[in-house]
Design a binder for these strands. Structure first.
Lengths: 122, 122
DNA sequence: CAGTATCCATAGGGATACTG
DNA sequence: CAGTATCCCTATGGATACTG
């Protein structure tokens, strides 16, 4: 069993509705957010690489989620003033901490995904 | 650093677009899904308790996400044929495994949420 | 009590075109 | 190359009413 008490308020209200945790959680668990964090956990990437690596993401969504991840201090953006432009994204220290918690989850999910989707509870 | 290679395809394609992992990941990281799993990780709950404990969730969304979580085999639904009806939800073995990976993440997020939302990267 | 059904608003998100 | 800007559509999700 796990130490549920490590998460505040799990017995009474499960994250009190409008507390900051809800916001951060939404950013972190967003469809494209996780995949981008996952991609960057393997090392820094340029914009065009991320577009390719995070299959299916639109430019709009890539820009949007990268911006919020940067605002939350998970991702660092480095723009070199050259032509053509060259922009690199990498995890910050905080982002790496987060990724350390995200990766085991992702690993577990991708390890069990097949039996889950086809077989249901069997 | 974390062992990125534990997640298949992180260097090439980050979860090959239409592989099952994407689907399961979406269920698991859905806005209400995480909160419900979190709530149930503290112990079994009745429908009405979940409504109250997972603050802000609508009946529609509660029903919908509980159903997909049940289909994925994370949650077990027990309906006792009494009047008034009494339905209890609890984690399955698989659900507990998942929660074990989810809880550390949640704990980290709620521990750091304040500094993240206000201070940005500072 | 534990849902389902219905209606409706809005935001998520895709495609395309344009720019420094 | 690395984005923004725009249009547009659908799915998410809230509120309400109804049922076994």
């Amino acid at each position: 069993m796990t130490d549920v008490s490590a998460v505040p308020g799990v017995t009474d209200g499960v994250l009190p509705a409008q507390c900051p945790s809800r916001t951060v959680l939404d950013h972190v668990t967003s469809k494209w957010g996780v995949l981008e964090l996952l991609a960057l956990s393997a090392g820094e990437h340029r914009w065009s690489e991320l577009r390719r690596v995070v299959q299916g993401v639109s430019e709009k969504m890539l820009a949007q989620t990268l911006r919020t991840l940067a605002e939350d201090g998970f991702v660092e953006r480095e723009a070199e003033p050259v032509i053509p432009p060259r922009v690199t994204y990498r995890l910050t220290a905080r982002g790496r901490e987060l990724a350390d918690h995200l990766l085991p989850l992702m690993a577990w999910v991708s390890a069990h995904a097949d039996e889950i989707v086809e077989g249901g509870k069997r």
